[in-house]
């Protein structure tokens, strides 16, 4: 089997992000970047398929500036086989990302594509679904469990949706987007990191793909959110319940 996993470079989720005073973007000085946490889960899921089904190849794809190599190397160190970096400096929305991935899929012909359910920087939660529609493929988004059929021709997906668990099945090729509980991603081992340096990381300028990535959405400005002030510290449970009843009037 061939599996394609999309990897996005995002600011460290534990970093406190601040908006530039002129609203033109965020302050990126000293900001650390990581693999989008849901994409790490996607990589892990692909590696588990590879461990089960012999001869499986896991190919990573990132889109962005040359620095995205770092995140691809992380995924290669976890155990992926090779990586593709689509070099693009321009702003792009999810449709643009999905169109680029569509083009790569035409060349790579994977059986299964796994993406994180959302990137924790722009929280759009769109690219996987858009790619599925562009390809005319079935999708299992927000997956918490994926079971590949014995013949590797179809999948059963359990999805964590509002109010319960939904089970779907579909034939491959298809798309999965990973939710938090799909698995616990492994750490890259030292030998893994050494090996990753020698693995193929191919760079393709976005212009070479001949895909229209003109954004359909434009961010005009960023502003800091309204701030909530800390209130009072109470001394006891009795005082707390009393204040909620008499002052806040919510119970």
């Amino acid at each position: 089997m061939k599996l394609l996993v999309a990897v996005k470079r995002v600011p460290d989720p534990n970093a406190t992000i601040k908006v530039k005073p002129d609203g033109s973007g965020i302050i990126t000085d000293n900001l650390k970047y990581v693999v989008n946490p849901f994409d790490e889960i996607a990589i892990e899921e692909a590696l588990r398929v590879k461990e089960k089904v012999s001869g499986t190849e896991v190919v990573l794809v990132a889109i962005g500036a040359k620095v995205c190599q770092e995140q691809l190397r992380t995924g290669l160190a976890m155990g992926a086989d090779r990586a593709i970096l689509v070099l693009a400096e321009q702003e792009m929305d999810s449709v643009g990302v999905a169109r680029i991935l569509q083009k790569l899929v035409e060349n790579e012909k994977p059986d299964l594509i796994i993406l994180g359910k959302q990137a924790i920087d722009d929280d759009a939660n769109q690219a996987g679904q858009m790619l599925a529609e562009l390809l005319g493929w079935p999708q299992g988004t927000f997956a918490s469990k994926v079971e590949l059929a014995g013949d590797q021709k179809s999948l059963t997906v359990i999805r964590e949706v509002d109010g319960g668990l939904e089970t779907l099945s579909f034939p491959l090729p298809g798309i999965i987007t990973a939710d938090l509980r799909l698995n616990e991603p492994r750490y890259a081992s030292l030998p893994g990191i050494m090996k990753a340096r020698k693995k193929e990381l191919k760079e393709i300028p976005v212009a070479d793909l001949g895909v229209d990535v003109t954004p359909k959405l434009k961010i005009l400005a960023l502003a800091p959110p309204s701030k909530r002030e800390a209130g009072k510290v109470v001394e006891s449970v009795q005082e707390l319940v009393n204040l909620l009843h008499t002052e806040a009037k919510v119970i």
Binding site: K18, D123, K216, K218, I219, L220, L222, A223
Partner: peptide, 16 residues
């Protein structure tokens, strides 16, 4: 819409 875990409020214009 909010970006970066609610740390930035973006004004977004549709170009389509």
């Amino acid at each position: 819409r909010l970006l970066y875990a609610g740390n930035a409020v973006a004004t977004v214009k549709f170009e389509s």
